[in-house]
Amino acid sequence: MTDALAFDIAHLLAGGMVLVSFMLLYQDRMNGILNAFTLHALVLAAAVAWQAHIQSAPHLYLTAVIALGFKAIVIPLALRQIVQRLGIHREIEKVVGVGLTMLAGLGLTALAILVVLPVTGGADAVAREDLAFSLAVVLLGLLMMITRRNAVSQIVGFMSLENGLILGATGARGMPLVVEVSVAFSVLIAFIVFGVFLFRIRERFDTVDVQALDRFRGDRG
């Protein structure tokens, strides 16, 4: 297998993550979001596994397995269960229109590439592309967090942001295994905390629309 092909596949997978991030932005139904998030995690697992292969770094396989197990299976299943129990399959209200959000996402992706590509002139091509795409994924995740009102979709935005971080870290062949494992666990714990909070919010306010919290605070928000 030539280097060019290896690079192309890595590029394809990383680009695929950006694409799925856009899909996440576009979704306006709960099930759709969860499906897209599962796909996000699957692509991440594939991308990491491919990196493990071309860098001949066996510990990255473990990262891929963690991504597959937690992000693509455990968390989506748990979220699905939460959504079921909360009974929210309705359409999601968006703060900004879909078109505008997508345009903003395009701008952010362009910005990420503009920032990373000139800075990393000396690094090898795979790492450069990975870094640019992972920054784009992080920014898109943040964008999702601030454009959604529903607490569950904010969680998904946060998780996709974290996927972007993992992608960047594996591409740069830097992160030691210990750090990865601890990051994975911290994300899991964040997820648990989020879940607990979701139910508490729901218990109190009969909704998981975070707007209700603002109203309850009774301030100028």
């Binding site: 703060v95 952010l108 910005l111 503009l114 800075v119 920014l139 601030i146 975070v210």
Partner: peptide, 29 residues
């Protein structure tokens, strides 16, 4: 006023600051 924003507005502020700094980096190089 900044002391009493909603969580989403705080996130938006952080996001705005991050994007602004990235733009600065992209333009000034």
């Amino acid at each position: 006023v900044i002391q009493f924003l909603t969580i989403r507005r705080y996130l938006t502020m952080m996001f705005g600051a991050l994007v602004f700094l990235l733009v600065v980096v992209a333009v000034w190089r």
